[in-house]
């Protein structure tokens, strides 16, 4: 598999899978509504609005209100998909997410669009590299970070089926469709081993999964067998899969998120207390300088080359 940076064809915008799934769910279930903060375009919800005009609620540029309105719609019996740029949906409305959604156990599905550093040059105000850390600490909200269109669809369907709060991180960065078995299934709380290996493990989620697979291929050529585990479900998290990965003796985590509080931290919390092993956490160290999303990922070593180098380093090879 070639790098997303160089392979422009065959890449997918996960927002398309999100809205296609939401429209299908909306056609089958009148309870499905979408709530937006003037973000019909950036959430790609124009089609949903045209099909179900009464069920697209645009509250304007008012994120605190948007999340509270979502909780109210859930109280009235709706399944509310609340969509906005992840940086504003989570950051601006964090207390509404905490009190109205997570603590209240409202049946609200928060869809954080264009998460991570997708907004590149727009800068740290528009990056969302803290969202998983913020929401993961609440415990009472399911946190999902899908890696490709198929998984995005599964996340949206699983969120709609369950009664309770969910946060789904939906990137706009082009990602390839990951290779999967025909009978692949998705379960909240279960990690997905995409490639077996025993010399070390690469745990990744979201846009980083394809890079982890590419790193494992590179390492295989050198005779290093690296397991690749897709950690879409951040909360609840698959402790068994993490402990099994620790048995290989070396874990590299990689996420389009801050190195503080995200996937790496979650894995370290479990590994350090149960099966300590060598670890390297790849992600963003803090607020990012000016640059495109792809530049920023390279700048912080979120590349297949550096993932491979990191595991090599842990193995002393």
């Amino acid at each position: 598999m070639s790098s997303p940076a160089t392979q422009k064809s065959g890449l997918f915008d996960c927002r398309d899978a999100y809205v296609k799934t939401l429209e299908a769910l909306g056609a089958a279930d009148e309870r499905i509504v979408a709530v937006v903060n003037d973000s019909v375009g950036s959430s790609k919800l124009g089609g949903f609005r045209d099909k179900f005009p009464e069920r697209l609620i645009n509250v304007g540029i008012a994120e605190q209100n948007m999340v509270g309105v979502g909780a109210g719609l859930a109280n009235g019996g709706k399944v509310a998909f609340v969509s906005g740029a992840s940086c504003f949906l989570t950051g601006r409305s964090l207390e509404q997410v905490k009190a109205d959604v997570a603590y209240s156990q409202a049946n609200v599905k928060l869809c954080g669009i264009s998460s991570g550093v997708a907004y590149g040059e727009l800068g740290p105000t528009h990056h969302s590299i803290e969202d998983v850390a913020w929401l993961r600490t609440m415990g009472d909200i399911t946190v999902l970070v899908p890696a490709d269109p198929w998984e995005t669809e599964q996340c949206i369907r699983a969120a709609a089926e369950m009664d309770g709060p969910v946060f789904i991180r939906i990137s706009r960065m082009g990602v390839p469709a990951l290779p999967r078995a025909a009978d692949a299934s998705f379960t909240i709380g279960k990690a997905d081993i995409l490639r077996e290996g025993g010399d070390g493990a690469i745990l990744a989620n979201g846009t980083m999964v394809c890079r982890a697979l590419e790193a494992a291929e590179t390492l295989a050529v050198e005779g290093i067998s690296a397991r690749v585990v897709n950690m879409c479900s951040m909360s609840p998290i698959d402790e068994d899969a993490i402990l099994a990965a620790a048995q290989t003796g070396a874990i590299v985590t990689v996420e389009e998120h801050s190195v503080r509080g995200g996937l790496g931290s979650a894995v370290a919390e479990i590994v350090s207390q149960n099966a300590p092993c060598r670890m390297k956490i790849l992600g963003f160290a803090g607020f990012q300088p000016t640059g495109s999303a792809e530049f920023l990922m390279e700048h912080s070593g979120l590349t297949a080359t550096n993932i491979a180098a990191s595991l090599r380093g842990l193995l002393g090879r």
């Binding site: 309105v69 109280n75 109205d100």
Partner: peptide
Amino acid sequence: TNTGPLGHGMPVAVGIAIAAQI
């Protein structure tokens, strides 16, 4: 709905009223 931090009730009430309107 769980209240305590101030300014949370109104948006939730508005959401309920929108559900009733739909």
